[in-house]
Write a protein that binds this DNA or RNA. Structure first.
Length: 597
RNA sequence: CGGGGAGUGGCUCAGCCUGGUAGAGCACCUGGUUCGGGACCAGGGGGUCGGAGGUUCAAAUCCUCUCUCCCCGACCA
């Protein structure tokens, strides 16, 4: 029997001053967590209880499709160099040295460790498929931890990895995870949505994120209320309204117009009396290839990435989506500095355009030439206006493919709210959301790089194909709180609440009340419910406030109606109160709560 | 890493500008009265004022350096 009077549940009347989001404030106020340092939290009794329940659900469901491992958090640096992620993850990796000076890292995820096991042990197609998972701490040296448990440097993650003989097998493993994730989040009582996700610089064809809408979230998701389209803003597309091209002027060749002092898209469009939609926005960027590990070791080359000029053209009123660009160029890009702009365009910023520059026809073959990426919204357009690469001048009559030759067309545009759904044309909405899970068709990257091989049916060596699948345990808790809170506290779904029911005798000095409450708690516990007895010698108001705060979905108030054989059952979420006969309490809760397994 | 803000008892904060005995509310301990929505009375404990250096007869307060935390941005399979 859990008695509040004997437990450490340090509730606070006020939230710490540095908490901003609801889940952070309430987790601290409810005595779930305490901060140790930026992005690192201790879980106290209630927090740990809830945490364990979440992990229990995750484990139960994962065990249906995979096998649980427990892997080290401490990895040798070499392992991460073998996969190429040591350089790729850069500062986000926690690094340390042991007493012998050997370099170690703290694991962010376990692709390398899992793959190293796979490559040593898996020999035959007969051993595939495999799904291996673990629930363990992960470490990321976040540049900016924030929002309590939402963005931390040490966190609990369920990460799973699948190994299949071929892509069709991966499809099956992927689908299993998709369905399992839905079951897990359903059981955790979350209102979530599944969105198409950016697979990022790691490659991979297909990826879905499991998202919970909340203003506290850092991700932006685009979705359609008219159909089931939903995607991360990083990869969302939309249907565009068609926009009329301008008629050619003069002989139809690029025509210089004087635009003194007009630099921005808006200024030029207004000055020339056209819409920004007939303008080209020219973005001058430099792609920084990640420093490769060989040249990195030579002192004189250390930290000097090779740069490549990337010029991006967008429709005048559109914004570049950096995640899409990164996916296209396979890395990150930064804006050019003034000298770099001068060197390429021979013109000051504000008058840049694609005309008169030799662009790479093939990004790889023409490595010496700058790359011109043109957003698909400009494909097929004609007589557009761009800078003339000459101070105070712009060019009219520019038609892509005729007056300049893009290296490639690509979808690079950031979707904005209200644009048309690519499936059904309805108006799209954009919401912020928290990512609670991510599934990912990894492909061959790790198995290939690290040299995993198995024999197929024909005795031929093939590289197994991988998928990886993550769930943020803390984020399930925070998302649940963000979803269900009011000014007094929060309520968790019974499946993940630290207790399902709190029994509150209004006055413990009245021995008959305390006894009645204790009996009720005992009986409910015997029936398999998770019960907390608030036997503290506090005034009822204090106990009610605490009960409202700490996330327990049901409260039983044991008061003077006990003499009539009745207590009050309060549903925290709605504040709905109903009188229930003590004799029928167990049946009542069996009707509204699943009993503990 | 760029920009902004904050470090004073367990929590929330005042005091700093204009240097001179460290404060309030909540929490905590003791006694008493209370007891269906964060009670009241009386008494009490608890603070290196983030740290170091400096100016001064005297520093929470002024100056320099530094550490930490929060927010915005950058970053974020």
């Amino acid at each position: 029997m859990h008695k509040w009077s004997e437990l450490f549940i340090p509730t606070l009347r006020e939230a710490p001053a540095d908490a901003e989001v609801a889940s952070h404030k309430f987790l601290v106020r409810a005595g779930y967590i305490r901060q140790l340092m930026a992005g690192v939290y201790s879980f106290l009794f209630l927090g740990n209880r809830s945490f364990n329940k979440i992990m229990g659900i995750v484990r139960e469901e994962m065990d249906k499709i995979g096998q649980e491992f427990f892997l080290p958090a401490l990895h040798p640096r070499e392992l991460w160099e073998a996969s190429g992620r040591f350089a790729l993850m850069g500062e986000n990796l926690f690094k340390l040295k042991d007493r012998k000076g050997a370099e170690l890292v703290l694991g962010m995820t376990e692709e390398e460790v899992m793959t190293s096991i796979a490559l040593k042990e898996l020999r035959s197609y007969k051993q595939l498929p495999q799904i291996w998972y673990q629930i363990a701490l992960k470490f990321r040296d976040e540049p900016r931890p924030k929002s309590g448990l939402l963005r931390v440097r040490q966190f609990m993650m369920k990460d799973a990895y699948s190994f299949d003989i071929d892509a069709a097998g991966l499809d099956v493993s992927y689908k299993k995870h998709y369905d399992t994730y839905c079951r897990i989040f359903d059981r955790c009582g979350l209102k979530y949505m599944v969105v198409e996700a950016d697979s990022g610089a790691m490659g991979g064809k297909e990826s879905h994120e499991f998202m919970v809408r909340t203003p506290a979230g850092e991700d932006h998701i685009v979705s359609c209320d008219g159909c089931n389209y939903a995607a991360n803003l990083e990869r969302a597309t939309s249907k565009l309204e068609t926009w009329g091209d301008l008629a050619p002027e003069g002989d139809g060749k690029p025509l210089e117009v004087h635009t003194p002092g007009q630099k921005t898209i808006e200024e030029v469009a207004r000055f020339l009396g056209v819409s920004p939609k007939n303008k080209i926005k020219t973005l001058a960027l430099m792609a920084e290839a990640p420093p490769d590990k060989k040249s990195d070791k030579k002192a004189d080359n250390a930290g000097k990435p090779r740069s490549r000029a990337i010029v991006v053209l967008m429709r005048g009123d559109h914004q570049l989506n950096e995640a899409k660009l990164n996916a296209v160029i396979g890395g990150a890009a930064r804006p050019m500095d003034e000298a770099e702009i001068k060197a390429l365009f021979k013109s000051p910023a504000g008058y840049l355009g694609p005309f008169g520059i030799e662009w790479a026809k093939d990004a790889k073959k023409d490595a010496a030439l700058p790359v011109l990426l043109v957003d698909k919204a400009l494909e097929g357009r004609s007589n557009l206006i761009a800078g003339a690469n000459k101070e105070d001048y712009h060019l009219k009559n520019l038609t892509p493919g005729k007056d300049f030759h893009p290296t490639a067309y690509a979808d690079l545009r950031a979707v904005t709210a209200g644009e048309g759904c690519p499936n059904c044309g309805n108006s799209l909405r954009i919401d912020t959301a928290v990512e609670i899970g991510h599934i990912f068709k990894l492909g061959y990257r790790y198995t290939k790089m690290m040299g995993a091989r198995v024999l197929d049916k024909n005795g031929k060596e093939v590289t197994p194909i991988m998928g990886c699948y993550g769930i943020g345990i803390e984020r399930i808790l925070t998302a649940a709180i963000e979803q269900s809170n009011d000014e007094n506290g929060f309520w968790l779904p019974p499946s993940i609440a630290p207790f399902q029911i709190v029994v509150t005798p209004v006055n413990v000095k009245d021995e008959s009340l305390l006894k009645a409450a204790t009996d009720i708690a005992t009986r409910l516990e015997a029936a398999g419910f998770d019960v907390l007895l608030d036997d503290r010698n506090e005034r009822p108001g204090v106990k009610f406030k605490d009960a409202d705060l700490v996330g327990i979905p049901f409260r039983i108030t044991v008061g003077n109606k006990v003499t009539e054989g009745t207590v009050e059952v309060v549903l925290r979420s709605t504040r709905e109160v109903r009188d229930v006969m003590i004799a029928t309490l167990v049946e009542y809760f069996q009707g509204v709560l699943p009993a503990k397994a």
